[in-house]
Computed example of a mutant assay.
Amino acid sequence: MADRVGRLRAAYGAGARHLLVLLACFAVASWVALRLAGEADRLRMLAWFVGAVVVHDLVLFPVYATADRVLRRLTVRRAPLNHVRVPALASALLFVVYLPGILGLGGSAYESATGRQPAPLLGRWLALSASFFLVSTVVYIFRRWRRDRS
């Protein structure tokens, strides 16, 4: 048994659980692709998906990898770094997901799809992002206080 696991790890590069999770992800992605195959806007969705992959790999990844490297060099200790990373990631993820609403774009498409007027999201996104950083700051201060006390 251990020999089979060792051969799988040598051939595949990871363990059996990783392979199973990856196969499950491919199954879900295939199901979504089959569901979208009958949609009228499938080519537009495919173009958006390919564009998102290209923009992420060629633009966004180098930007946030560089920002992380700068943050690592600026912080002497690693502890506060995650208290900046986590709220920044949450804020960036919300920004990307709600980008058209935050920038005030796509109002007619939103209204035709939902039958509702688009709500202004910029103020809400800013408030939510500020709350992410505030909670992270409070957690960091509490951890420092508890560590200094003991």
Rank of each mutant, 00 (worst) to 15 (best):
I141N: 07
V53P: 00
S108G: 07
A11K: 09
V5T: 10
L20F: 09
V59L: 15
L93W: 11
F61E: 06
P120W: 09
A127R: 09
D148C: 08
R146H: 09
A47T: 06
L128G: 03
A52P: 00
G38P: 01
R4K: 08
R42M: 05
R9T: 03
G51K: 01
L71F: 06
H56G: 00
L126F: 07
S129E: 02
T66R: 15
S108T: 13
F132L: 03
L20W: 07
D148P: 00
W145T: 05
V5C: 00
V59M: 11
G51Y: 02
A47Y: 06
L23H: 04
R69P: 00
R149I: 01
V86W: 05
M45D: 09
E39L: 14
V21Q: 12
L128N: 02
V63S: 07
V21G: 00
S136V: 01
A24M: 07
V135A: 11
R17S: 08
A67W: 09
L43E: 13
L93I: 06
W31M: 10
A119N: 05
P87V: 02
R124H: 13
L105H: 07
L36G: 01
L58I: 02
S150N: 11
R124A: 08
G115V: 02
R7F: 01
R78Y: 11
P100Q: 09
V5I: 12
V28E: 12
R42Y: 10
V139D: 11
E39K: 14
H83N: 03
A130W: 04
V55L: 15
R149Q: 14
G107K: 05
E39V: 11
V32R: 13
R42N: 13
W145V: 06
Y64V: 02
R147I: 03
A11N: 04
L34V: 05
V84L: 15
A33V: 04
R42E: 04
A52T: 05
Y110P: 00
Y140S: 04
V32M: 14
L99K: 08
R17M: 10
L126K: 07
V5N: 08
V70A: 13
V28S: 03
R72T: 05
T66V: 13
D3R: 15
N82K: 13
V21F: 09
F26V: 01
Y98K: 06
L74W: 13
V55D: 12
V32G: 05
V70F: 06
P80Y: 02
R124V: 13
V70K: 11
A27R: 05
A109V: 09
A14H: 07
L89F: 09
P62T: 09
G51H: 04
F142Y: 12
L22F: 12
W145Q: 12
L20A: 14
H18S: 10
L60D: 10
D41R: 14
N82Q: 15
